[in-house]
Amino acid sequence: MIELKSVTKRFGDFAALDDVSIRVPRGAVFGLIGPNGAGKTTAIRCITGMLKPEAGQVHIGGEPVWDEPGVKSRFFCIPDEPWCFAGASTRDMMEFYRRIYPGFDEKRYEALWNVFSLNEAQPIRRLSRGRKKQSAFWLALSARPEVLILDEPVDGLDPLMRRQVWKLILSEVADREMTVLISSHNLRELEDVCDHVAILQKGKVLLQSPVAELQENTSKFVLALPEGATLPQGLDILSQSRTGKLITLILRGREEELRARLREAEPQFLDAQPLTLEEIFIYELGGEDHGVQDILL
């Protein structure tokens, strides 16, 4: 649905994006992750058509985005600090978007009032940060875009509202295959919602994969071996630690295959434990750069 092909964007001598290729499938909830300065916002600005890359192409639905209103009407972007016209209320913005976005659904707008319960006549700039975000989601979901682009989306929202917003977004994904691209430097926030992720580091893509695939290919075991026994040969060990007799292993490979291999050492105790995204990234990319640590902090 969204495709960046070998995109390079420079600001003077600094390459904010360096030959970046990312593919976001239709209906995916795609997490674009990276530390500050990794190029996430630049990537989003290239996707939304604000920035024109020096090299490469940005397509949505197979069509180039740059200065193409037809393509732009298919997505809606909520930046970190939602934007509005000076003095505009949510209602004012709705009136504006209604004319700009052909898919804008006024009935949905009315229906969502029950969820957000904002005073739609109040100027948005006078709302709190969290309420500004709510107003932005209200408008975005009413526009019924094919693609929803979110930059640090739920900062400022309280836990209940976060859950509510994600529920609405995911229902849109389920009902009509809305594609969601989320840029964040906070991995934990994305863990529950993303089905695809890409990590950006210093303008380059370090990793890009479906989350399930990542989880399938990395396994965590806790085991205790008899006196004198050793681990079987040929295991792709990403991490190993020992606490007393208990050994914790992070191994590359599928859980069933690895369990069978580990049983060869006749362990006194063997247990597979679920891996968080955070752990996967640490162990997959731990040696890559210190920047990966920044994502997790």
């Binding site: 600005r45 604000m50 920035l51 200065d67 209103p69 037809g70 732009k72 930046p79 600090e81 934007w83």
Partner: peptide, 16 residues
């Protein structure tokens, strides 16, 4: 920058 980013994302041609 913020205004430019918002306006650029609208489904309107730059000339329009």
């Amino acid at each position: 920058v913020r205004d430019a980013a918002f306006m650029a994302a609208l489904p309107v041609k730059r000339s329009a």
